[in-house]
Amino acid sequence: MIVNVDNLVKRYNDYTALDGLNFDVREGDIFGFLGPNGAGKTTTIRILTGIIKADSGNILINGYDIFREPMAVKEIINALPESNGYYEWMTAREYLKFFSNLYEEEMSGQEIDSLLEAVGLHGKEGHLIRSYSRGMKQRLGIARALINKPKLLFLDEPTNGLDPKGRRDIHDLLIDLNRKQGTTVFLSTHLLDDVERLCNRIAIINYGKIVRAGEVKKGTIEDIFFLSTKEGAL
């Protein structure tokens, strides 16, 4: 297991956003973390990536306790946050250079360019991010999240707001990454189409609880989703 979440609880003041979450992610999975808006997906990802603290529970990422050894975890994971912003005044090259500097290993100009090419931004490396479309920015965000060649990549609703072509590009990119590099992908989404195309395992979260987890059988996901998230089915 590359991710092991045990009885995770997170409260915002009086509101319990995560109410005893339990689930695992296996190495090599494209894991779909599915749930309606406000279910607690972003909160979970922020805790798993060490951005915010939890109130209680245990989390192991590749065997490391995220609360005790956050730096060890950060070396092997990366994430594309929900509605990620960019330093729009930088070029794509400068953007990747800046973030690669924050890792011990610096990337050469050539490595940066080939990473940009890998996400389909060839020919746009020297353009200001300001001039990028939404889909291009999202691909740049994924490139940034690949700087440290993570074993585990978190993506928080990466296809939100993209047109069908943009979504398909992201899908293809993630499938490629999973097959060729063996990267485990943790994908949060509320779009069933993402899950159908990408994921081999899912967990469905609703009101801060996992209501369903398991393998994905093609063509059944919509039924499962509505059955497990509708009121009364909890």
Binding site: G50, N84, L102, Y103, A145
Partner: peptide, 17 residues
Amino acid sequence: GEIERGTLEALFISPVN
């Protein structure tokens, strides 16, 4: 500014304290 523009989270994910 960084929170508003959504850039702080990517910084926090990087191994920089």
